[in-house]
Each structure stands twice: as C-alpha cells, then as structure tokens.
Amino acid sequence: MATDLEIVRVAALSDNYVWLIHDPVSDETVVVDPSEAAPVIAAVAQRGWTISQIWNTHWHFDHTDGNAEIKAMGAKVSGPAAEAERIPTLDTGLREGDSVRIGKHVASVIETPGHTAGHIVFHMAEDALLFSGDTLFAMGCGRLTEGSPAEMFGNMQRLAALPDETIVYCAHEYTVSNGRYAVIAEPDNRAVADRLHVVEAQRAAGEATVPTTIGTERATNPFLRATSVEQFADRRAAKDAFRG
C-alpha cells in the first residue's frame, strides 16, 4: 500500500527521532513528538514547509519540549487527553477512537497505556503508517514507567494484529540494544540473529535502523511475539536489567 505523504526523520537529542509528515496536496505539515524545536524548524525551513500541527504520543519531555516554540509559529497541538495536565501546550485532547487529519489523510487514535498512563499512538490505516512513540520500538517496546505488563501485553497484541505492511515510525534509536537482548530471549530464532547482524552494520555505518514494519516486528520482536502476559512480564523485566 503506497502513500503520497512525505515522511522525514529528524534526529534530535541523543537518540530521539522526530517525524515530519507532509501532505503535498494540502501543503500541510505535521510534526510528531518534537523533543526539541531547533532541528525540526531547520528541517522544515530547508524544504519550504510550514508546520500546522503537532501530534504528541505522551507527555515525556523528550517528546514535548519542542512544542511551545513550534506552537508559537502557528501550530496546533493534539495529544492524549489523559495527560492534558502534563502537556500545558495541548490544544486538543485525544482518546481512543478519535482521529486527526492532515489533508485528506486520517490518523486514528489508539490508546496504549503502559509506558505512560495515557500514551496514544497514531494509526493511518489507509496509508499503512503507525506513529508508535515509545510503545513499540524496532525489536522492543517501551519501559513500564506508569503501567502494567498486562496493559503493555494488550498493546502488543493489538499492534501485532495490524497488517504486516504497516510502516512503524518509533521515537528512538534503540534497535541494537533491543536486538542484543532479543537473541537472548529467542536464541533459536534465526530471523532475530540475522536482523541483529544487519542493524549492527547499519549503526556502524551511521545509518538509522527505523522505520520498521509490523511484519518485521512479528518475526523478530520478542515483546510483540510474547504469547502470554507472564512471558511478556518476564521478558520486560529481563530487558530492564539487561546491559548490552
């Protein structure tokens, strides 16, 4: 499934990715989770774009610290209604089943509590795109800073059910560390070992390892592949203690 949207990855802070979504038809641009404003503003200026919207997946500073400066340039901020008190720049609070738009393209809101209590993701079904914030990573998932294993396991089940071709835009470059844990979690999974070899080479060459796809994660992500809450909880606890 192809999309005519232009997606640009902007590196920020030490390991964050901010995503720009540009619709060439309406000439609108959305920024997803601006951890800082300067690199985002530079990226849109280089392309002659204007940011009209900010979409936040959750309240953490490394996803919202750029909001105020970008909002001052005319952008409207949409994000989780459950975290409105923690996102002072928020204009529109979003809940499960709500939607936001860029031009004619629609993103549905899926509530994915776990990393934070009100975390949401943006699923653009017709474009086969998912902006997953800190819920789903390449070969990993977010730490449970405010939620339970049962909640995050439920999130993994929901996201695993999306079409394989869905492109996943997560917010951090964690893939090598995630992959090194994944080969321990699933030592007999050849696909995991093969992927780790690839992503280590990508990082050694200074390349990004994301976006990924749901199909790739279904084959190589030990959290998306967990078959029970108990297995998920064991894997999450082991990854939290993992140093690799």
Rank of each mutant, 00 (worst) to 15 (best):
T29I: 07
T50G: 00
G48L: 01
V30Y: 04
P39D: 05
D27M: 14
D27N: 15
A43W: 01
S26M: 07
W49G: 02
I51R: 02
T57V: 15
S35D: 13
I54Y: 00
A43M: 04
H63L: 14
P34K: 03
I54K: 01
D27G: 11
G48T: 06
W49I: 07
E28T: 08
A37P: 06
T57A: 11
I51E: 02
D33V: 00
S26N: 10
H63M: 13
S35M: 06
W49D: 02
A43T: 03
T57L: 09
D65N: 12
V30Q: 00
G66P: 01
N56Y: 05
E28Q: 14
V32Y: 04
S26L: 08
V44R: 02
I54M: 05
W55G: 00
Q46N: 14
G66K: 01
G66I: 07
H60N: 10
D62M: 08
I54Q: 03
A38K: 14
A38D: 14
N56Q: 08
I54T: 04
R47T: 04
N56T: 05
V31E: 03
E36G: 03
V44G: 01
Q53S: 13
W55M: 05
T50K: 14
A38N: 11
P39N: 10
T57K: 01
T64Q: 06
V30C: 10
V30F: 10
W59H: 15
I41R: 11
T57G: 11
V31T: 08
H58C: 13
G48M: 05
D65F: 09
P39T: 10
V30G: 01
I41K: 12
A45C: 02
V40I: 09
E28G: 10
S26K: 04
R47P: 06
H60M: 11
T50M: 10
P39H: 08
S52L: 07
D65K: 11
T64M: 05
R47I: 03
D62H: 14
H58G: 08
E28S: 11
R47G: 03
P34L: 03
A37L: 08
F61Q: 13
V30I: 15
V44I: 14
T64E: 04
A38G: 00
V32M: 10
D33W: 00
Q53T: 14
F61S: 14
Q46W: 05
V31N: 01
D33N: 15
Q46S: 15
Q53Y: 09
D27R: 15
D27P: 03
S26P: 07
Q46L: 12
T50E: 12
G48Q: 03
W59P: 00
H58M: 10
W59G: 00
H60F: 12
P39W: 09
T29E: 03
H60W: 12
D65A: 14
P34Y: 05
S26H: 09
I41F: 00
I41T: 13
W49Y: 13
V40L: 04
S26V: 07
V31M: 06
A42P: 05
T50I: 11
D65Y: 11
H63A: 12
T29D: 03
A38E: 15
H60R: 12
A42G: 10
A37N: 01
A38Y: 08
E36S: 10
A37W: 03
